[in-house]
Design a protein around this nucleic acid. Structure first.
Lengths: 191, 191
DNA sequence: GAATAGTGTTAGCGGATGCTAACATTTTAC
DNA sequence: GTAAAATGTTAGCATCCGCTAACACTATTC
């Protein structure tokens, strides 16, 4: 077992699966992209489905939202929302290929353990709690759940817009767009 | 030529292509979903690629952004942004299946005539112009291009969030989320 | 009720795909 | 330098997919 070889195969799989979706990628293509014989793929990974699953496992980044909320917030709305947004953007970016892979590979409304569902739902709960406490403190008036969903959607929107339509954001970098919008929202939400 | 039959086939194609992507759908599946013999498909549409293209043509909704900007705006920021957002949401929803189809069918960064690129880019230009004029009138201070990209991303984010992860928005309906966020943004952007 | 258009059925071709078997070659380890 | 481990090569099998051909059946039209 050569670690380097299996890495090459996993890299190539992830690249191709995220570009074209599971069904549209052939093991022959993966072999070529990895610079490896097709046989080698089957020797290491048994079959295509298994390769797919190991690739997901290999490249999944698991964010630590709980730690973020427990240790890194300062109870200033703009500062915290920006920190949360940035960390979520980081998560989305690191899971970019897996997310694309899942979107492109069959059923959208399945697998709650996929990063497409698991992390946003986790983050939503924490965010609602946070916003509830901020509301108690009088730092905002909005409905916390509506606001939480909005913040998640905003971040996902920037992420997908960047992924899909780079011409749209050509003259504008994401990071400043987001910090700008967070500032606007904070201002619009405070008193 | 029976119109009803070709409609059934087009409907089934769109349903399946948008669920699974072009390559993952077989003509046999389409035939079954349409309740029709596979042969009939080829009699009507020659080949699979052609069926795909006619399905896109059949179901594409072309928004009239120009008319919207020329006739329906009242130069009140919140009112106008809400109207623009709602119309864009409507466009996204009506093109929902085509958008999914394109996302799931191969290259993301291709075909500028796809509704994924064409309409957002068109809308962006009009929105930047509008915001520029509003800025001249003193109705906002932000950078118009950054704000325009943000508004588009926000809308696309709500749309995709709803499409992909309906549990996230379970207790919250999109429309009120959007009008709420538009209100917040307007407030945060004005003076 | 005969002619015609629309649809179904069956069989199959050529090519691709996932995957296996058997053997040859190269690389690594000691 | 030899044994063992890793990888390549070639051939091929079973299945599926897009698509065609030929013919049978049914509904519609006049």
């Amino acid at each position: 077992m050569n670690n380097h070889t299996s890495e090459k195969i996993l890299d190539a799989s992830m690249a191709l699966f995220s570009r074209k979706g599971y069904n549209s990628v052939t093991t022959k293509q993966i072999a070529q992209e990895a610079g490896v014989s097709e046989m080698t793929i089957f020797r290491y990974f048994e079959n295509k489905r298994n390769l797919f699953e190991q690739a997901v496992e290999r490249f999944m980044f698991s964010p630590k939202f709980k730690a973020l909320f427990e240790n890194n917030l300062v109870w200033d709305l703009e500062t915290d929302l920006l920190k949360i947004s940035n960390y979520y953007q980081d998560t989305l970016h690191k899971n970019q290929k897996i997310i694309l892979m899942h979107i492109k590979s069959d059923g959208l409304d399945s697998k709650p353990e996929s990063p497409l569902f698991k992390y946003p739902n986790e983050l939503k709960k924490l965010l609602v709690d946070y916003l509830n406490r901020m509301k108690e403190k009088g730092a905002l008036q909005e409905n916390p759940e509506v606001l939480a969903v909005s913040i998640l959607a905003v971040n996902f929107g920037f992420f997908m817009t960047y992924l899909i339509n780079k011409t749209l954001t050509s003259n504008t970098d994401l990071e400043s767009c987001i910090s700008n919008l967070v500032k606007i929202i904070t201002k619009g939400v405070t008193g």
